[in-house]
Design a binder for these strands. Structure first.
Lengths: 220, 220
DNA sequence: CCGTTACGCTACGACCCGTAGCGAAAGCCG
DNA sequence: CGGCTTTCGCTACGGGTCGTAGCGTAACGG
């Protein structure tokens, strides 16, 4: 969001209504047209806004879509469901619900494609979308450790590495199932996935004895 | 590939050299320009071919890029490395090596984005790219079952579901790590991932006793 | 009221798209 | 060899989108 009017500012302020209208129009256009056929002129018309107004706020299609899609992930939360298994299952279903929306699919994948040749865009995506998801993993882990479901991390180094691994596995699996396999993430799948992941966490945390707390290569 | 000359055909045959040149030029353009700035006229020029020749073979940018990217996955194989762990680690590293190439990143993600609003394109991607990857999962499983590392499947239904799950987890994790986290899949990561997945497979196959063969909800 | 900034509108050159039409080239076959 | 067929390279075209510039008007603060 770059529409923030710098505090001590003179002149006519930017219309916040225009911002929200443009982002909503962008998502609507993504649903109907997809990425490649989406045109900024069309978005401006849908939003009831002049094309020049749009260009004053966003440098191009890429950045606009990033912001439009990022808003979809605002609703991501991690309510405490009492157990690690329930937490994982809950966040998987929540994440999948957002990804199931057509504007999320086409918009997110497209900007990710562009980010492979545009470093600034990659950083923008990371800040406004990816990092927000990653926090859920960190929060879920600390909760599980507080419950005694997972052993504490030996050091900062492996703690970070493990969180990265879990994040890639959880988010990656859901994304692949939804966008590439193009099949629904329902409760059944979420349960099966959770069982698999949880089994892996327990196994690596307690490599020999299933009841003793882990001592060697922990992945949790 | 639609350049196959129908057997009993008269007239001048299509140049196979043109096909390979066009696909190579497409990949080169993907590296330098990315998806959105890639133009068919530019590809034709790079390939030393007239623009009309390109349009005679591919209906548009989407289909062309699918074929160009699909060739990258031709080298995917699953050599028998002796154990399930080694097989998983091997295929993960192999898959990651291909995905690390910039033309694979930008091209694959872009056509996946388009496929969310183009069913024909989705099917094309599935046939020429995704299904080929999936076969590695099926092959790895049957090998592991032959070795006795995994229990046999109870029925066709769950066998299929389990393969789908494993495929989404393996491919999804690697894709997410490479394209979204934008970090390298090195040997260390592959080993950690394999340990996690293998632990999950063993845990769900043998829910209570780590030494007895699984009897309940198998996920392998 | 005045300075400043945002807005809507119009117009513009530049670029890419996808197609049509042409003559020449490269095969097959009698 | 002389036809027949299909592909090739080339040129040209209308149509659409891009991103910007310029202008007059609207909205806010001092």
């Amino acid at each position: 969001m770059q529409s923030r009017t710098p505090a001590g500012r003179t002149g006519r302020p930017r219309s916040v209504a225009a911002d929200t209208a443009i982002l909503a129009a962008t998502r609507a256009a993504l649903v109907e047209l997809g990425w490649s056929k989406l045109t900024l002129g069309d978005v401006a018309t849908r939003a009831g806004v002049a094309k020049t107004t749009l260009y004053r706020r966003w440098p191009g299609k890429n950045e606009l879509v990033v912001d439009a899609v990022a808003e979809l992930f605002d609703e991501l939360e991690l309510p405490d469901r009492g157990s690690l298994a329930a937490d994982i299952e809950g966040v998987v279903l929540q994440f999948a619900t957002i990804l199931a929306r057509p504007e999320a699919k086409s918009g997110l994948m497209a900007v990710l494609a562009e980010s492979t040749v545009d470093d600034a865009l990659r950083e923008r995506i990371r800040d406004s979308i990816v990092d927000r998801q990653k926090r859920l993993v960190l929060e879920g882990r600390s909760r599980a450790q507080a419950r005694g479901e997972l052993p504490p991390e030996p050091d900062q180094e492996t703690a970070s590495k493990n969180a990265d691994l879990i994040f890639d596995v959880v988010a990656g699996s859901v994304v692949h199932r939804t966008l590439i396999s193009a099949e629904q993430v329902d409760t059944s799948w979420a349960q099966r996935f959770t069982a698999l992941l949880l089994g892996g966490l327990n196994a690596t945390a307690r490599p020999t004895d299933p009841t003793a707390p882990g001592t060697t290569t922990s992945v949790a």
